[in-house]
């Protein structure tokens, strides 16, 4: 059954899109990630214009992070104060990101930039995950503990001013790095159409030493606000959010996530990370391949309706 997307302005197959939603939802439920970094490239592979894919991706992430964050809220694993500082930075970053997005779009370099950012971030994160999980695995085999956390250790981050107390995370640290992390991830939300959890979570754990138990909930909490803000900003400036597309993906996504979570609970942590690392790397490779291979047509058109017609 084909359906016409009013903003993307093309006919697509509902079942394929729904299936993509379920598949990405399944993987995100299984690995406990947002899935935006998989959804946006998939939409682009399916010929959705990258500008629409990115902006709609942000909208879809609102839905998946709400259901995740609610679960964490019930368990009390969200540091609201930390999340709020992050989201203030995130909103500022998203504002800058939408400006960058508009400039790149007008210059005809948006598609290229999206692809390069994806290759860079997915390539880096995917490799790190794979290496880390393989190491953890060999450690487990060697009989050592799998836990690499070294509590109490301080780094340069803790010497910065504007200190705040984050009770839930049992941290006393400067608001500057928290704001900066939020800001950088905010830019990525609007330019790449991701939630940014894949940057946020490691940054909070390794740079700020936020306890692992509250990291995911706090990250999800701030993602809701930043992606909601991005959705509104993209709708207002670039008109690239396709609500019909977003709704199909959302419904597929939340259903897939339930099955994914059930499967994920049966797998070991290092196995999960190795699999996710492989998946992320293969998406990066596919995008890198498209950048390097000679395009089918080196010419492309962009049209603007002349007013007064």
């Amino acid at each position: 059954m084909s359906i016409y997307l009013p903003i993307a302005e093309l006919s697509v197959n509902v079942f394929i899109l729904f299936g993509m939603g379920v598949a990405v939802g399944f993987l995100s439920g299984m690995f406990g990630v947002g899935g935006g970094f998989l959804m946006t490239p998939l939409l682009i592979f399916y010929n959705i214009p990258p500008a629409v894919a990115v902006a709609t991706g942000a909208n879809q992430i609102v839905a998946s992070s709400v259901s995740g964050a609610l679960a964490h809220f019930r368990c009390g694993t969200i540091d609201i104060k930390l999340g709020t500082v992050l989201l203030v930075g995130g909103i500022a970053g998203s504002g800058l990101g939408v400006m960058i997005f508009t400039i790149l779009r007008n210059a005809g370099q948006l598609d290229l930039m999206i692809a390069i950012l994806y290759v860079f971030f997915l390539g880096t994160i995917g490799s790190l995950m794979l290496v880390e999980s393989l190491r953890a695995r060999s450690r487990v085999k060697a009989g050592g503990g799998a836990d690499t956390r070294r509590p109490g250790q301080h780094n340069w981050v803790h010497g910065l001013p504007f200190k705040m107390r984050f009770r839930k995370s049992k941290l006393y640290l400067s608001a500057i790095p928290v704001f900066a992390i939020g800001f950088l991830v905010g830019i990525l939300v609007s330019v790449m159409g991701v939630g940014g959890g894949f940057i946020m979570v490691p940054a909070l754990i390794y740079l700020l030493h936020v306890p692992t138990s509250v990291v995911i909930g706090t990250s999800l909490y701030q993602i809701i606000f930043v992606t909601a803000f991005t959705t509104i900003l993209q709708s207002t400036t670039n008109h690239t959010v396709d609500m019909v597309l977003a709704l199909i993906l959302m419904v597929g996504g939340v259903i897939g996530a339930q099955f994914g979570a059930a499967v994920g609970q049966r797998l070991r942590g290092d196995q999960l990370r190795a699999l996710l690392g492989l998946l992320v790397l293969s998406v990066a490779l596919r995008l890198a391949f498209d950048l390097v291979v000679t395009p089918k047509d080196i010419f492309s058109l962009t049209a603007i309706l002349v007013s007064g017609n």
């Binding site: 909208n59 609102v62 992070s65 709400v66 509104i232 959010v241």
Partner: peptide
């Protein structure tokens, strides 16, 4: 555009909440 965006966010919030 603004109201459209707001509507898109509300739709997402409701979908997420319903799922939970």
């Amino acid at each position: 555009g603004f109201w459209y965006g707001a509507l898109a966010v509300i739709a997402a919030l409701v979908t997420g909440w319903l799922a939970s």
